[in-house]
Simulated scan of single mutants.
Amino acid sequence: MFQFNPSKGMLALAAMNLITGTTANLKTCASSSGFSCQSSSTTPTCCFNYPGGAFLQTQFWDTDPVTGPSNSWTIHGLWPDNCDGTYEANCDSSRAYTNITEILQAQDRSDLVSYMDKYWVDINGDNESFWEHEWGKHGTCINTIEPSCYTGYESQEEVGDYFQKTVDLFKGLDTYKALAAAGITPSNSKTYTAGAIKAALAKVHDGAEVYISCSSGKLNQVWYFFNVQGNIIDGKYEAVDSLTSSACSKSGIKYVPKN
């Protein structure tokens, strides 16, 4: 799914436009189906994401308290956006499951759970509740992974697919390495410009502009935006510019270490 690019010195999504194959039992989508947010269609189908057609792979840099490894950002989630910065939330209360760990383990995804426990972590130490929140608020609003879109659907199958896809995207968007390759490393004394940070991250996002967030002048979030052709699990992802304007200062941004 990913290829190593020696010129960038890190894992990158191969051209960010490859079809990312999985073993999901979703209905087959024609390669001619349009990209989300780029079609005039307003009809959601199992092969067309609507209204949440833009997808954000979002990441945290938590330092107070610290979460995750000192040399890696952590996962926030995978969110559908209505192509304009607005979004639907908590779309299906009947599928707002409160046992994500059990669901994943029952699907023989224990390795996925272990990875999530390291890289998809809650600031208060309650990973399970965090995962439940992300699935209930965002996952249930993705129309191309509704149960009716599966062939031979097995209960809660879409839950495992959603978390696996989010992790796969995260693995191909190594924010820490992308910044380090541009000389942007955690420091208690150095500061950086927003332009330099965005330029470094655009190199792993097919040149598309990312969204950065700051808290008290410190870099703490990155959002990568995509449009998708087909369903979100094994569809074709295309990197697109951020739909959200950053409130970070243009200069003097701190990127403090995880002490």
Rank of each mutant, 00 (worst) to 15 (best):
M16P: 11
V222C: 07
G235M: 08
L169W: 05
E146C: 08
A54P: 03
T74Y: 05
A15H: 15
K27N: 13
W73E: 14
G195M: 04
G195Q: 07
T63G: 07
Y115P: 00
N220E: 02
N25I: 09
G125M: 03
T74S: 07
D206A: 15
I233S: 02
Y237D: 07
K171I: 08
G160T: 09
T185N: 00
P65G: 04
L11K: 11
A200L: 10
S41T: 06
Q59L: 15
T151S: 15
S93K: 13
C214E: 00
E88C: 12
Q156W: 12
Y192W: 01
Y50A: 10
I75Y: 07
N99H: 08
V240N: 07
A182M: 05
A106R: 03
S216M: 02
S40Q: 13
S39G: 06
F130C: 01
G9F: 03
D168G: 04
T22R: 15
S33R: 15
G53W: 02
A106F: 05
N220Q: 01
M10Y: 12
C248Q: 01
S110W: 08
R95Y: 02
Y150S: 11
D81F: 05
T74V: 02
A106G: 11
D122I: 02
K118S: 14
W61A: 06
N49W: 07
P147M: 11
A239Q: 04
H133C: 03
V66M: 09
S94D: 10
V256E: 04
L243G: 01
H205L: 12
S70H: 05
S148R: 13
Q107V: 07
T191D: 04
S39F: 07
L169G: 12
L201E: 08
F163E: 04
N220M: 05
N220W: 02
A14S: 15
M116F: 07
I142Q: 08
P44E: 11
N220S: 05
